[in-house]
Design a protein around this nucleic acid. Structure first.
Lengths: 127, 127, 127, 127
DNA sequence: GTGGTCTAGACCACT
DNA sequence: GTGGTCTAGACCACG
């Protein structure tokens, strides 16, 4: 379910944050369910526990998970915050892109049409 | 014309690539015109010549400029490739964002409306 | 009467200390009355007896309860110390906060008004 | 200027975040000025660079400082966010205290008077 | 057993 | 030189 891509130039902990954030947002990690422990996940992925810890800490900061000393880490039961976390990232990325488009005078209409095209193209290939 | 923003978290060479790419795409750097030499621009911006070199190398790879040993660096005369370079980046970014939106089942309509809103908001604040 | 909140980030033993301290201070646990035994309360709450023991030890240290070997644990009959224990905590916290406010030159008036606002807001939402 | 207290039970990185946040909020660290490098501060305080790094990362997340790879860390020039960061903490603490006071039925009037008393007491002892 | 903090020492990208 | 990431291994508080 959770894997890391060593070809990806982003730091490992960031890949983990994104991956777990996605799974939680889509409900594939049930709200309230327990995540693998820091040590266990570190073993599974053959990476250092500190790196997992860093990812979990960031996820907790974002309200995606809650960690309790001595008990473990759990997916947040506040389902709204699960999705909001990811949607905010999309909106931030979009704002940056539009900023670039305005600088280049890339017309709004083409931008929107490209977006629509990508949505339909992506939508088709889904099972 | 060319400046660097130390508050910007991106590496300086990347800021340069973007900035020069923008200027060329908008025609503010005339096709065929000569760019400042690596050393001269390094002096002007008070940064390391290596950093300029890295930016120029990347720009040449993208077909935005051509460098001729012993003569200097020139904006490409292939105006199409100038704009295409930048537009490709926007499209790539958009494709990635749409991919994320599909994963999260973030509705196309909201995505498009957010984009439109950002375009109008950004368009207003232009001098 | 006594419950634990797993969403609460504080350690369980600390929640118990607070909860029992509150009940004693408000007179809902009569002075002199017997508390559940460590084992019994551990069973009821499905938590480790060590955790209960730790809470009882801390409560005894504070003079809220007295434990007698072989007989059990009892709410202190010194009613003054019951309430004082809790009020001292509030005053300590307040002193620390005011210390911070002075360091930051956060004006007394705003501090007081914020406190009043919180009291009224909190007072309304009580059943 | 910056020191750590080993008697303090809070983690070192948290003490640093608070201390630097205070100095920045009070203007004792001028906006835009450079902080000691991660390694240098680690040497001065005889603690591990990772611990400093953790503190700086948190300070950047809060908008108190900006860190630039290869250049260093700088106090934010957004003076509003410097103070806001600290004031938010005071308000959060106050809200928690009032919540406790309501539970204990500790009268608002006494609470407010205690606060006023502490303000004046603390105010007097200032040079 | 759990999460959280810390040290020691390394490598990377950027200047 | 700078900040950022990572590994390895330790200790603590909590259950």
């Amino acid at each position: 379910m959770i894997s890391i891509d060593y070809k990806d130039r982003r730091p490992i902990f960031e890949q983990l944050v994104d991956k777990i954030g996605d799974l939680a947002a889509k409900g594939l990690l049930a709200p309230g369910s327990q995540l693998p422990s820091v040590r266990q996940l570190a073993m599974e992925l053959s990476i250092n526990p500190n790196t997992i810890q860093k990812a979990y800490t960031e996820l907790e900061r974002r309200g995606v998970i809650v960690s309790v000393k001595g008990r473990g880490s759990f997916v947040s039961e506040d389902t709204a915050s699960l999705k909001n976390d990811r949607i905010r990232q999309i909106k931030d990325g979009l704002a940056e892109l539009v900023r670039q488009a305005l600088i280049l005078e890339y017309p709004q209409q083409e931008f929107i049409e490209e977006a629509k095209r990508l949505f339909e193209e992506g939508g088709e290939s889904r099972s």
